[in-house]
Computed example of a mutant assay.
Amino acid sequence: MTVIQERPATDARTLIGATLRATLASNMQAKFPELSDDQAERGIGQMLAFLAAGAHSDTPLSPSPLVDDFWHAFLLHTQAYQDFCGQMLGKFVHHQPGFLDKAEHGGGKALRARTVDAIVAAGFVIDMEFWPELDLADCSQCHANCHNSPKHA
C-alpha cells in the first residue's frame, strides 16, 4: 500500500527576510495608502509566489495588476531583487512588458488562470483577493500587459 501525504501550501513570504518584507510593504503603502499592513504583507507573498512559479514555467505567466505593482516595488530594490532571483530562483527573472498573442495564449483571463494554477502547482498559497480578474468576464491582460515569458528574449 502506498501512502501519499500532501504537503501544506507554502506561504511565499518566507522566501525573503522580515526586513525586506517590511521595506516592500512600506513602499507599497506609501504608493497605496488604502493598503492595510495585512494586505501589504499578503501582496508581497503573492508577488513572490508568482515569481517563483514563473521562474520555472515553460509557458508565459502574467501577474494581476496589483501583483505587478508589488513586483515593480521589488524591482526598485535592484540588489535585493537580483540576490533573491539568484539565491531563491536560480536565475534572474526579467520584467518584460509585451503583448502575447491571444490565439496562442487564450487572452488575459486564461493567462491569469494559468498563472494561478502554476502558483498552486509550485506549492504556494493563493490569495484570491490579489487575482480578482478571474471572477470577471474575459478581458485583456493587465494595464501594462506585463508577463514573464520564457520565449521573451
Rank of each mutant, 00 (worst) to 15 (best):
M1E: 13
V3W: 01
E6Y: 05
E6G: 09
E6V: 10
R7C: 08
R7G: 05
A9F: 14
T10P: 05
G17W: 00
A18R: 06
A18L: 06
A18I: 09
A18W: 03
T19K: 14
R21D: 05
A22G: 12
A22K: 11
N27V: 14
N27W: 06
Q29I: 07
S36R: 10
S36Q: 09
S36N: 13
D37S: 13
D37R: 14
D37I: 11
D38H: 11
Q39F: 10
A40F: 03
E41S: 13
E41D: 15
G45N: 09
G45T: 05
L48A: 08
A49R: 05
A49W: 07
L51P: 06
A52E: 10
A53Q: 08
A55D: 02
H56V: 03
H56S: 08
H56W: 02
H56N: 09
S57I: 04
P60C: 10
L61N: 02
L61P: 02
L66E: 06
L66A: 11
V67N: 04
D69T: 11
D69R: 14
F70Q: 02
W71R: 10
F74L: 13
L75S: 08
L76M: 12
L76Y: 09
Q79R: 12
Q82G: 10
D83Y: 06
Q87H: 10
L89R: 03
L89G: 01
G90A: 03
F92I: 05
V93K: 02
V93N: 01
H94M: 00
H95A: 06
P97D: 03
P97V: 08
P97W: 03
G98I: 06
F99N: 14
D101P: 05
K102C: 13
K102L: 12
K102V: 15
A103N: 13
A110N: 01
A110H: 01
A110V: 04
L111S: 04
L111N: 02
L111F: 02
R112K: 10
A113G: 06
R114K: 13
T115N: 04
T115D: 01
V116D: 01
I119C: 07
V120T: 15
A121N: 09
A121P: 05
A121G: 07
A122S: 11
V125G: 03
I126P: 04
I126V: 15
M128Y: 04
M128I: 04
E129R: 15
F130T: 07
F130E: 01
W131E: 09
E133D: 11
E133N: 02
L134N: 00
L136H: 12
A137Q: 15
D138K: 10
D138C: 07
S140P: 06
S140Q: 08
S140G: 14
Q141P: 10
C142N: 15
H143Q: 15
H143R: 15
H143T: 14
H143L: 14
A144S: 13
A144H: 14
C146N: 14
N148P: 00
N148M: 11
K151R: 13
H152C: 06
H152R: 13
A153E: 09
